[in-house]
Design a protein around this nucleic acid. Structure first.
Lengths: 188, 188
DNA sequence: GACGCTTTGGCAGAAACTGTCAATCATGAC
DNA sequence: GTCATGATTGACAGTTTCTGCCAAAGCGTC
C-alpha cells in the first residue's frame, strides 16, 4: 500500500513536477483516500525525501563501525559509500529523483535540512572518535560539513552530467580536493 | 507598514514559537487584514528569513569587488564581513533570530535553501575569478561551500554560546582551520 | 469636484494537513 | 459457524497557509 502510493506519486511528480501535482491526483491514481496518504507520509515532500533521506540514519553507525585508528577522511569516504552504492544501484530512478529534488525549492530545502541533521550526527561521532568537545572545538562540525559538501557537490555534478561520470569517481575527486582539511581532526 | 507587520510578527514568534503562531494572530496584533500580510511577505517563513537572507544578495557583488589577485580565502573572509557586521550591530535581536531559525525545522530548511543559492552565486564568481569552468571543475563549488560552512558553523557556535565569543573571532578560527582547502582554487 | 494611482479589505476558494469516528476486514478463539 | 479483537481504511469536518478577484478608501493632480 505504501509502495503503491509511493510509485503512483513518483510517476506523477516526475511528469508534472512537484508543485503542479496535488495530493488528490496522487490518491486518485493509487485508488485510496487522502486520509490514507497522510497516514503513510507526514507531508507531500516526504514521499520524495524518504528515498534520499532514509539512508542518512545509518551514517553515524556506519562511521562508528570504522576502525578507530583510521584517518577521518578515509573513514568518512567509506561511510558515504552506502549512498553511492544506493544511488548507482538504480541510476535512472536516482537521477530523476535527484534532479527533481535539486530543481524544486521546497524539496531542496527539506533535503538540506535532513543533510544538516546527518551533519550534526557525524560531527558528534567525529568528536567522540577524536575525544574532542563539539561545543568548544569547531573541528568536528567543520569536518562533517566538508565531507557532506563533497558528497553534495559530487551528486549535483553527477545529476548535471546525466550520470555520465561515475558518482564514486566524482566523490573521490571531491574528497581528494578537500583531503587536507579532513585531516584537521586527526591526532598529531 | 511592512515594518509594523515585521515587528509584530517577531514579537509573537519569539514568544510563542513559529508553529504555534498563526498569521491571524500576527495581523491582529498589527491591526491589518491577512491579505495585507501576504502582500508584503510571500510566506510566513519570509518574515524571519528576510532578515538573515537579504544580505546574501550582495555576497556575489561583494566578492566581485575584491582585488583579483587576492587569494580566494582572504577575499571570501572579507566578503562574509557584511554578515558579521550586520549580526554584531544588533546582537540581541540577531541572537534570537538565529536561535529561532536554527531551532525551527521549517525555518532552518528555508534558510539552508537560501544559503545554497548564495553558494551557487559564490561558486559562479569564484569560477569567473579563476577562469575555471564550474561545470567540469569541482573547485569553485567546493570552495564556496566550505567558506559558507565555516560561516554557518561559526554562527551556530555563536548562538549556542549566547554570543559570548565574538562572531568575527569564531569565523576567523573556522577559516584558519579550512585555510588549506580554500587555496585549492588559487592559481599555481 | 473629477480623474487616476496606490493601498487596503473582504470574500471566495484551492491545497495541505489533522482529529475523530464509523465501517470494513482479517485473524484467531471458542 | 460465530463472535470478539485489533488493525486498516474511508468519510467528514475543521484549521491553516496562501492566491485571485473585485470593491472601497485614501491621495495627489488638474
Amino acid at each position: 500500500m505504501r509502495d503503491e502510493l509511493s510509485s503512483a506519486a513518483l510517476k506523477l511528480l516526475a511528469v508534472q513536477g512537484f508543485e503542479n501535482t496535488t495530493i488528490d491526483q496522487i490518491v486518485a491514481a493509487a485508488g485510496v483516500s487522502q486520509r490514507t496518504f497522510f497516514r503513510y507520509f507526514k507531508s507531500k515532500e516526504d514521499v520524495i525525501i524518504e528515498f534520499i533521506g532514509d539512508l542518512g540514519a545509518c551514517l553515524r553507525t556506519g562511521l562508528a563501525a570504522r576502525p578507530a585508528a583510521e584517518p577521518a577522511g578515509v573513514a568518512l569516504r567509506h561511510t558515504l559509500s552506502v549512498f553511492v552504492d544506493a544511488y548507482t544501484a538504480f541510476p535512472a530512478k536516482s537521477l530523476s529523483l535527484v534532479r527533481l529534488t535539486l530543481g524544486t525549492p521546497a524539496l531542496h530545502a527539506r533535503y538540506l535540512e535532513r543533510k544538516a541533521r546527518w551533519q550534526a550526527e557525524l560531527a558528534a561521532e567525529l568528536g567522540r572518535r577524536a575525544a574532542l568537545d563539539p561545543d568548544t572545538d569547531l573541528r568536528p562540525a567543520l569536518t562533517a560539513a566538508v565531507a557532506l559538501d563533497a558528497f553534495d557537490i559530487a551528486l549535483a555534478h553527477w545529476a548535471a552530467g546525466d550520470g555520465k561520470s561515475a558518482l564514486a569517481d566524482l566523490l573521490d575527486e571531491a574528497f581528494a580536493l578537500v583531503a587536507h582539511t579532513l585531516t584537521m581532526i586527526d591526532p598529531e
